[in-house]
């Protein structure tokens, strides 16, 4: 426990907060934060729209190949980040046939905002789907059946019974996948170095300006991550 806590305390003591204050006002830093958070939010919204219905199906239906689908969803958990970067580049860069179609739609991957979103969706999908799926599994199907006999169709039942009852897991899944998206750096180094996300900026400054600058940049990111973590703990404890 101390092993994990000590660096957090030391960073707090060793940081030049005056420098941090000045840095967060610099345009390049501000833009890196905005890029990171908008990309992470976009990836989480895409995941929520696609992932919540998929989670519901995985929690409720039995079909052939279900375990294969579940395994595929979890693959990003075990792939090294650099490999994810290569995979995205190989499959979706504009030189490939799929990437060609995507870039015609404006979804260019390499060194582009959408490349960042693609990487983030890829790495955070399992966190959202697994968490939300567990939430739906914990809702007694009999509640849904009773709602149906009371005249609610499948969609109404989903939105008035299943989703509100699983909302803690849904919120936890959304926060986890957002945090995972924010923390991604390895695959981004390969797919989309530009526009610079905050993690890439930290690495770049560490390499060029040294620890002092990198340190000052990590503090605001750390604060945001810890606040999110506290939110998750609060929500899961109430559940």
């Amino acid at each position: 426990m101390l092993f994990i806590l000590i660096p957090l305390i030391v960073l707090h003591i060793a940081t030049n907060y005056f420098l941090t204050y000045k840095l967060v006002q610099a345009e390049i830093v501000l833009r890196a934060f905005i890029t990171t958070f908008t990309a992470a939010s976009a990836s989480t919204i895409i995941l929520a729209i696609l992932g919540i219905p998929l989670s519901y199906i995985l929690a409720r239906r039995e079909f052939r190949g279900k375990s294969i689908v579940e395994s595929i969803i979890d693959i990003p958990l075990v792939i090294p980040h650099a490999v994810v970067g290569i995979l995205i580049l190989v499959a979706y860069s504009s030189r490939t046939s799929i990437g060609n179609i995507l870039s015609n739609l404006g979804l260019i991957v390499e060194d582009n905002f959408w490349g960042i979103v693609f990487v983030m969706v890829y790495v955070s999908a399992p966190l959202l789907v697994d968490s939300v799926k567990d939430g739906f599994k914990s809702v007694d199907p009999m509640l849904e059946y009773v709602a149906r006999t009371l005249g609610a169709g499948p969609y109404r039942t989903f939105f008035t019974i299943s989703l509100p009852m699983a909302w803690r897991s849904v919120v936890t899944g959304i926060i986890l996948s957002w945090a995972r998206a924010v923390s991604e750096v390895g695959a981004l180094l390969i797919v989309a170095y530009y526009p610079k996300t905050i993690n890439i900026l930290i690495i770049e400054w560490f390499n060029t300006f040294g620890l002092e600058y990198a340190k000052s940049l990590t503090v605001p990111l750390l604060v945001i991550c810890i606040v999110l973590f506290a939110c998750i703990r609060y929500l899961s404890r109430r559940a």
């Binding site: 007694d140 009999m142 509640l143 059946y145 009773v146 709602a147 149906r148 006999t149 009371l150 005249g151 609610a152 169709g153 499948p154 019974i161 509100p164 009852m165």
Partner: peptide, 20 residues
Amino acid sequence: FPPEKRSVALVPQDYALFPH
């Protein structure tokens, strides 16, 4: 027919009240 079109009401063994 799906359940919502049958005009039956179910009272399950554990009553299945909507807890939320």
